[in-house]
Design a protein around this nucleic acid. Structure first.
Lengths: 242, 242
DNA sequence: TGAATAGTGTCTGTTAGACACTATACT
DNA sequence: AGTATAGTGTCTAACAGACACTATTCA
């Protein structure tokens, strides 16, 4: 039976049935200390809150008065936690079931956000960065956030194989070896220097600046992301190890 | 449902705020007459319904009593419209805003479904297949379903470049030229026969059956999908025309 | 035999991987 | 000079595209 009993003589269709809770959750990634990190917040410890004291992805209920769209809601939550204004924001998917929230049937809209290195420290006091170990984080997370995080990591790793997404994790200026290192950290495997440089340079997404990174050895050319460049999709993935 | 520990009206956190409407919409694709089609239903013509008489993606409100998860809800809606039980089902994304439904703030969870050719005719009386022309359908659709459909088509075309997804659109037995034709219809461009055959045969996703398709010319080997095969991801896309 | 489509083989172009080689800084 | 890292060049492998060629059916 479809859910439209036509007994009520209302002007609009009858909307008087229970509605699921609607939330938005953010999986914010950043690189710190040669490690991929995810942003988590600790849930209030009042016993009337679900999962008190556990760590969780930042997020919360859609506010029908404040948020014009789901993406607006995601950006608002992110701003409240990090102060970051317009980063790379991509919808991950939605997760909804009767069981995932003890308060009732709920559906969350999950977003993935990539935070550039130089902004990763401007976060709210109640939020912290946790290193990704393998497919997740050491802590047990609230709700089904373990699952959401795991899906997000898988998606990120897959896309890094054939896109320029890691550019969103870089500081304003960076060298090619540094960029390659970021790819390797996310993918958790070594890449070939020569092939990597050829791919990046021929993609026309970065441009050299008139400076070099000095060190105890040969200095490296500094690059920056070309302005107003959408992420590039390559026609091939890096070859995975057999 | 086991494990529902809320038999008492607990003093849980205050949930007394307006909730968005939660719906699920299905973008069901099938091939008919050498054309990609999408399944649409016509909205009731009572003037108290939004978008009366317009065509729309099949879908509707999540029923917190019937649907254990979002995917369950999608499968239920699909079953009611097509009788198809377990096709290829993939989440497309969610679309939520204050404006998309005149009845109030609403968020829909969109799913893409691929219907095999031999099942495309077992649909409910109030649903119909509409041919995809360019990036959408000729009709103006209800809600933001034009947008959802457009996103779904883009996603499908992108994935067909590097996956074996079109196998889900095929009948039980098919020839390689027929499969190539399906790829070409979805991608709306010609593919190279030799490269196509090499890719498909080395992917180990189909196997020949002991029959051929007769015609007014050389008969073609019939194949079927290998059992229990997840969609294959190729390491390269087809080369796009420059 | 000719038309039509199925199916194969051969060559080329592109790009990743392996790896050696050169380049340029610092100590 | 020695070391460390940046950056290049050369060869191979994999695979898509172009296209010619062969194979098998029917009329």
């Amino acid at each position: 039976m479809p859910s439209s009993p036509q007994s009520t003589p209302k002007p609009l269709a009858n909307l008087d049935f229970p509605r699921p809770l609607t939330t938005v959750d953010i999986v914010a990634f950043a690189l710190r200390d040669e490690r991929l990190h995810v942003l988590l917040v600790q849930r209030g410890s009042e016993p009337d809150e679900p999962f008190p004291g556990l760590w969780a992805l930042p997020g919360g209920f859609v506010d029908v008065a404040k948020d014009a769209t789901l993406a607006d809601c995601a950006l608002r939550k992110l701003r409240e936690k990090t102060g970051v204004a317009s980063p790379y924001l991509e919808q991950l998917g939605s997760f909804g079931s009767a069981a995932r929230d003890p308060r009732g049937w709920s559906a969350t809209h999950a977003y993935v956000v990539l935070i550039p290195a130089h902004l990763a420290d401007t976060i709210a006091a109640d939020a912290s960065w946790f290193p990704i170990v393998g497919g997740g984080v050491k802590q047990k997370l609230a709700f089904d956030h373990d699952t959401i995080l795991s899906v997000a990591i898988t998606r990120l790793r897959n896309k890094v194989e054939y896109t320029s997404l890691p550019l969103y994790l870089m500081p304003a200026e960076f060298t090619l070896p540094e960029l390659q290192r970021v790819y390797e950290i996310v993918l958790d495997r070594a890449l070939e220097k020569s092939a990597f440089r050829t791919r990046m340079l021929s993609a026309d997404v970065i441009e050299p600046v008139a400076r070099t990174r000095k060190g105890p050895n040969r200095p490296a050319q500094l690059y920056r992301v070309k302005r107003a460049k959408a992420p590039t999709y390559f026609a091939r993935t890096f070859n995975r190890p057999s």
